[in-house]
Amino acid sequence: MSKVQDDWGALSRLPGNPMMWVLIWSELVVFGVSFIGFAVAHVLHPEIFISSQNHLNRFLGGVNTMVLITSGLCAALAVTARQNGKRRLMRLWLGAAVVLGCVFLWVKFLEYGEKFSQGIGLETNMFYTLYFLLTGFHAFHVVFGIIILIIVGWKDSVENIEIGTTFWHMVDLIWIILFPLIYLLR
């Protein structure tokens, strides 16, 4: 994140593309409100939430967190490689980030599949409505992030790589909060 922005006011004091930081703030506010709503619903209906939450695979959720964190490292290393002019290495790191993103989605797919096979869906109860909406909305971000990483790996200017990886780290950041909230807090 090396580019100095010229006329974005206070946003010029942030690294990378200012519009990406506007997006990050927007996402943090939207998800922040949703997270607080989830916590309130949990406390108002503890029996439904705790009994449903106990059917989630908490360990697998933790493993998926590690997968996304490692993917974030690969994305950050891709930026450094590109800034040093090592395009081949940058593509390798970006490729690793994409593969790990796909692993994350695969685990989510397995989780959803297990729930659907048990007859559990979006309308089962309030917990599962919020679980599918929040994790599903996040999973859409992961899919979108993977597409962005592939595009910036192809159109690989330093700025493009920075923008793409910034989005990827934001997806990582949201999951860091989503995981303990949905899987662990009770």
Binding site: R58, F59, G61, G62, T65, M66, I69, F179, P180, Y183, L184, L185
Partner: peptide, 11 residues
């Protein structure tokens, strides 16, 4: 993350 899993009794 391991600390999170231990604190949250993930197993």
């Amino acid at each position: 993350t391991i600390g999170t899993m231990l604190s949250g009794h993930a197993t």
